[in-house]
Amino acid sequence: MSFVRNSPDRENPPIHRNLKTILSESRLSITLDRLCHQLIENHLQFTDTVLIGLQPRGVFLSDRIHSRLTHLIPGIRIPYGKLDITFYRDDFNKGEALHIPNQTHIDFSIENKKVVLVDDVLYTGRTIRSALDAMLDFGRPVQVELLVLIDRRFSRELPIQPDYTGKSIDSIISQKVRVFWKDRDGKEEVVLID
């Protein structure tokens, strides 16, 4: 049985593959700014709103969103957590590789809060389903919204749609989307790998 580490450093794209840039560094920065302003538009002072990034790759995005929001609204403190969904996956022992868990860090209750879930790429929707399941162990939120950087349209296996989208793309199953972050990969870019 194969085995993957559910961590940011897996899946280094082989060099011979075709890379197509979806978002360059400057475009990515503009998109992040827009997403932040959309959040502010809907949540104003973030009085009852919490931000939850999904481990392992969504947290790089949620780190950015969180720090930008903190800059944009002076003096604001938005509760921010990281959620690992490994133990809530629906493909455990279904012939898929075993995933190694990451850290969950949510030191607040989400009871009666508005939750914004943050992940980098939305594909089948199964990760988000697991996240909804995992979140219930921390309380019952009044509302849950989903923010993604890349929405791979027409590839959903579950009725899950994002509320905030960085960019929607059309892709086929054999293709992969990979997001590079400066603090981890030394460059900032979103690419489509054939």
Binding site: F87, Y88, P101, N102, D137, F138
Partner: peptide, 27 residues
């Protein structure tokens, strides 16, 4: 090391108000 690393995550789960995950529901 792998067992310890995994146990760290389960320890966090055991500190939650709901100390249960659905992982082995088919086992």
């Amino acid at each position: 090391d792998l067992i310890f690393q995994t146990a760290d995550n389960f320890k966090e789960i055991l500190k939650r108000p709901i100390k249960k995950v659905p992982t082995l529901r088919d086992t």
